[in-house]
Amino acid sequence: MSGLVAQRITFSQALVKTSRWWPVALIAMFVAAAIFAPLIAPYDPNAQNLVGRLKPPGTVSRTFHYWLGSDELGRDVLSRIIYGARISLTVAFASVILSGAVGVCLGMMAGYRRGWVEMVIMRVVDVFLSIPAILLAIITVAVLGPSLLNVILVLVLTRWPRYARVAYGQTLAVANMPYVRLSAFMGASATRVLLRHVLPNIIGAITVVATLEFGLMVLFEAGLSFLGLGVQPPTASWGAILSVGRNYLANAWWIATLPGACLFLLVLAINLIGDFVRDYLDPRIH
């Protein structure tokens, strides 16, 4: 009986380890496809073949072999999905890094300085958090105009308050530690105290927020592109492909289904990694 229990425990541990690694492998595959898109994609994502429009997966038309089918202009869906990964990951990486940098700096400053600095920064955070993020993003992009750079700026503008809120709460807890107060008493500047003593202690919580925000950034970019407010045609984007594919669901399901599946798998893998990072950094679990 004890041997059977031990085997079950060993199997469950192996299953847990496997479940932790496949999201990493999946994200690595998407990242590699985005980086090496010109080498991997079989065709130019914007190359048209009107004779081969709306062909199902596996069809050959002229010089095109449509492994995942073609769209309404005869463009290869596989090539457009591969190049679309570039847009989604570029926007996600840039927006997470920039919004994280802005939010963490302001949050730490509010938690350490206190007083009127805290009041001003945190009231601004409250205002931004009270507005639906997707609504604010749509309004801002509509005003600035749709483009890749504007999408990144809009996501940074709408998502930095979440980092600021977490950094503020964590800084309040760390700022009263004896070694932090002693460092300030010995004459260390606020910048040195924040970078040397506060930031290393709150980076774990910020990392958890960043991993979860990464998936949201992918979804926000796809949503804006779906509404025509993201990158503009003919640039390939998963959201833009979904927007076109919804008009052909009856007779060309692959146009919307396949990039939608890629979007689902990428966000799922990111969220699973975020859960693992949260559990790993939570001292109550160990």
Rank of each mutant, 00 (worst) to 15 (best):
2 S>R: 15
3 G>Q: 14
4 L>E: 15
4 L>Y: 13
4 L>M: 11
9 I>F: 13
10 T>F: 11
13 Q>A: 14
16 V>N: 15
16 V>P: 12
16 V>W: 15
17 K>Q: 14
21 W>K: 00
22 W>A: 02
22 W>I: 06
23 P>S: 06
24 V>Q: 06
25 A>L: 15
29 M>Q: 08
29 M>C: 13
31 V>A: 12
37 A>N: 02
38 P>N: 03
39 L>E: 10
42 P>R: 01
45 P>T: 02
46 N>P: 00
48 Q>P: 06
50 L>C: 02
50 L>Y: 12
51 V>E: 15
56 P>E: 02
56 P>N: 03
59 T>L: 07
61 S>W: 01
62 R>V: 14
62 R>F: 15
64 F>K: 04
65 H>T: 15
67 W>Y: 14
68 L>V: 08
68 L>A: 11
68 L>I: 08
68 L>S: 07
69 G>Q: 06
70 S>P: 05
74 G>T: 01
74 G>D: 00
77 V>A: 03
79 S>K: 03
81 I>V: 05
82 I>S: 00
83 Y>D: 01
83 Y>F: 10
85 A>H: 04
86 R>P: 02
86 R>G: 00
87 I>D: 09
87 I>E: 13
87 I>Q: 11
88 S>W: 03
88 S>D: 04
90 T>F: 15
91 V>L: 06
93 F>W: 11
94 A>F: 15
96 V>C: 04
97 I>K: 08
99 S>P: 12
101 A>M: 07
103 G>I: 12
103 G>R: 05
106 L>Q: 05
107 G>R: 10
110 A>I: 10
117 V>S: 09
122 M>S: 10
124 V>I: 15
125 V>C: 11
125 V>E: 09
125 V>L: 09
132 P>G: 00
135 L>M: 04
137 A>M: 00
137 A>V: 01
139 I>P: 01
139 I>Q: 00
142 A>F: 05
142 A>W: 03
145 G>Y: 13
145 G>L: 10
145 G>C: 10
148 L>W: 06
149 L>I: 14
160 W>I: 06
160 W>K: 02
161 P>K: 14
166 V>P: 05
167 A>P: 14
167 A>M: 03
168 Y>A: 12
168 Y>H: 09
169 G>H: 08
172 L>W: 03
180 V>S: 05
181 R>I: 15
182 L>R: 14
182 L>F: 14
183 S>G: 12
183 S>K: 13
184 A>C: 08
189 S>Q: 09
191 T>F: 14
192 R>K: 13
194 L>F: 07
195 L>N: 11
198 V>H: 06
200 P>A: 07
206 I>V: 14
208 V>N: 10
209 V>W: 08
216 L>G: 12
217 M>Y: 13
218 V>E: 08
219 L>V: 12
219 L>T: 11
220 F>P: 09
223 G>L: 12
230 G>E: 02
230 G>Q: 02
230 G>H: 05
230 G>N: 04
231 V>K: 04
234 P>H: 00
244 V>M: 09
246 R>L: 06
247 N>P: 08
247 N>G: 08
248 Y>W: 01
252 A>N: 05
257 T>Q: 07
257 T>H: 04
261 A>C: 12
264 F>T: 14
264 F>W: 03
265 L>H: 01
265 L>Y: 05
266 L>E: 11
266 L>H: 07
267 V>H: 01
270 I>V: 15
271 N>Y: 12
272 L>E: 07
272 L>Y: 05
275 D>I: 08
278 R>V: 02
281 L>M: 11
281 L>I: 04
283 P>L: 06
284 R>N: 10
